[in-house]
Design a protein around this nucleic acid. Sequence first.
DNA 1: TTTATATGGTTTATTAATAACTCAATTATT
DNA 2: AATAATTGAGTTATTAATAAACCATATAAA
Lengths: 112, 112
Amino acid sequence: MPKPSTRPVSQHCLDALALLGQLIREARLANALTTSDLAVRAGISRSLLQRIERGDPGCSIGAAFEAAVICGVPLFELDARLLSDRLGRQKEKMVLLPKSVRSVSRKVNDDF
Amino acid sequence: MPKPSTRPVSQHCLDALALLGQLIREARLANALTTSDLAVRAGISRSLLQRIERGDPGCSIGAAFEAAVICGVPLFELDARLLSDRLGRQKEKMVLLPKSVRSVSRKVNDDF
DNA sequence: TTTATATGGTTTATTAATAACTCAATTATT
DNA sequence: AATAATTGAGTTATTAATAAACCATATAAA
């Protein structure tokens, strides 16, 4: 028996997870899919899909996103057509950013 | 040594995961946070944060969302202020939906 | 109302994620 | 160019997620 997860999660994060779960459930019903149907299509178990719809933070993000994608829940308000384009533009932006950061105050001069 | 995950994940899903990871990384750098900094604030290990930024589908959704929230990546294009409101409205919508669905063709009459 | 199906909530064995560490390579600053 | 810090990637022990049962309840259709 696995111990229940003890990782602290902020309320805002729990809210976002709950919303995603509800959106998936709503989209599933709108497409007239049973939990079993969607689980099979997503390649996951029905019990895992139930936890995803409940907004369980312990689910793998791959499973949750797959379920969302299959029943048409837009991730980041982007549809499939725009996603790859945005990925490319994002990469270009990243090139302009520093590869790493340093602490602003790194050595205090206190020999006086 | 745990076997590598074998769950199939669609390309669209992988793209969405990669985008989220890049957005988190960009936001982290914009806030001048090291991977260690953000990991500590999110209550996760640095190695897990690295996987999240890489878009690994096996990460827990709670860990990924927490990291995103902390460095200000908007989930579902919603900020914290609007999220709880939308959660409420979503619940109201759900009440109007059927609680379960049935297969359309459920019994074929083939005794003739 | 009856019947068949979907769902919610358990349990347990198996599988994979996670934390903590190490080390090499990059990167930013002086 | 030298130095110090960040990052990337790999390893292993521990912990938790997942799949697959099961059953009770709720739900939709006849």
